[in-house]
């Protein structure tokens, strides 16, 4: 099987899985956005649920309404109708995400789950990941994380999780393995990496990603009392751009105090539109984003 061959598979009797590529690449992800828009626009009566993966998508359907093979043909037709996505318009927000790296809470979690969970038992996740990515210390890794924006690919796993990819050339991507066995516990708002992807855990959960720090602000707000959550209890949406800023404990505590009294607001630029073509020059794109956010 060629690594970029589109592969169709059934998941039991209620799911269809379409994997466009084994490796991740951003243009495949844009194509998935286009295909899913087309599938939703088609208003298929059998469609129950769907979710994008990073280089695939999953459809849940009612096979009593449309039988499996017929449904697969319909999805295939819609998938094949999307070809060139370089000029596809993507509209999202630019949001600054303040992060306390090397925080005491994720550090304690990380050191608790070594033997039987992690690749090695000596180093913390952030030190281990800095090392395998060729950085002399965690500071180099943090600098790389803050140097270019991330795009939200999907909001899967549990509600509010932000799965993001840094808008940088492939050879500059940070890449880390997932835990050998997932941890039974991850603190809420842990900032983490798995594969080539940034994950922000919205709430306490299990998890197999490497933990680097803690986000000061939330990605889910069930009460919807915060400004940024008035329209949706979930912050991340595919196409949003996240700019990570490293903060210290003092600023972290100040933000958490604002959260407690309901006055916290993310620094945000709304309605930012770009096309995949704009990503031909990553460095320039990163500059544009920074200018818009800090103008």
């Amino acid at each position: 099987m060629a690594e970029n061959e589109t592969m169709y598979n059934f998941g039991g009797d209620e799911y269809i899985f379409v994997e466009l590529s084994r490796p991740f690449n951003l243009s495949v992800n844009f194509r998935i956005m286009g295909i899913l828009t087309k599938i939703l626009d088609a208003k298929l009566p059998a469609l129950v649920d769907y979710t994008p993966g990073n280089s695939s998508f999953l459809i849940r359907y009612n096979p009593d309404i449309t039988p499996p093979r017929e449904m697969m043909d319909i999805i295939r037709g819609l998938e094949e109708s999307i070809t060139d996505v370089t000029s596809m318009k993507i509209t999202g927000r630019i949001i600054e995400i303040p992060v306390l790296f090397n925080d005491p809470w994720t550090h304690e979690t990380v050191m608790k789950y070594r033997e039987g969970y992690h690749q090695q038992t000596e180093l913390s996740d952030i030190d281990y990941c800095a090392k395998i990515n060729g950085f002399s210390s965690a500071d180099g890794l943090i600098k790389a994380i803050c140097s270019a924006p991330y795009m939200v690919l999907n909001s899967g796993f549990i509600p509010g999780l932000a799965e993001c990819y840094q808008l940088k050339p492939e050879e500059e991507q940070i890449q880390v393995p997932k835990y050998l066995n997932p941890r039974p516990y991850t603190p809420a708002l842990a900032f983490s990496y798995a594969g080539a992807f940034l994950d922000i855990y919205p709430s306490e959960s299990t998890g197999g990603a490497q933990l680097f720090g803690m986000c000061a602000g939330p990605t889910i707000n069930l009460e919807q009392n915060l400004y940024d959550f008035q329209d949706s209890m979930i912050l991340p949406k595919p196409g949003d751009l996240f700019c990570i800023r490293s903060i210290d404990m003092e600023e972290f505590k100040a933000i958490r105090a604002k959260l407690a009294d309901g006055t916290f607001r993310y620094k945000t630029v709304h309605g930012f539109t770009f096309t995949p073509k704009d990503l031909m020059d990553y460095a320039q794109f990163a500059e544009t984003i920074k200018r818009r956010l800090y103008a």
């Binding site: 209620e14 991740f24 993966g53 695939s56 999953l58 690919l153 899967g156």
Partner: peptide, 9 residues
Amino acid sequence: NVVEVGYPI
């Protein structure tokens, strides 16, 4: 490990 996929029930 695979590149993230949607998980069926």
